[in-house]
Amino acid sequence: MSLTADDVNKIAHLARLGIDKQDVESYAKDLSGMLDLMTRMSELNTDNVEPMAHPMDQAQRLRPDVVTEQNNREKFQAIAPQVEAGLYLVPKVIE
């Protein structure tokens, strides 16, 4: 399995990840190498195996419906790149 530079650019866009032009080929090579590693899994028959998402077979615990958090805006926005009037600012969103 090998990925092309074009594939890498598509994935990078999906992940909103800027990558330098000169690095695209090397990512393509590394990812192809990883995919080769992964094809080894196809050696194993897993037809009747249940996928395992968690190490523990446990149920989700439920939280009582109680408000426990107070307004902490000042502290949270002190670390924000750009805020005004209590809002986070971003380049114009076009709908």
Partner: peptide, 15 residues
């Protein structure tokens, strides 16, 4: 919510 009132051409985000 995205608030589109004008913040110097930017959008404000209220979470």
């Amino acid at each position: 919510k995205s608030l589109h009132e004008d913040f110097h051409g930017l959008t404000g985000i209220d979470l």
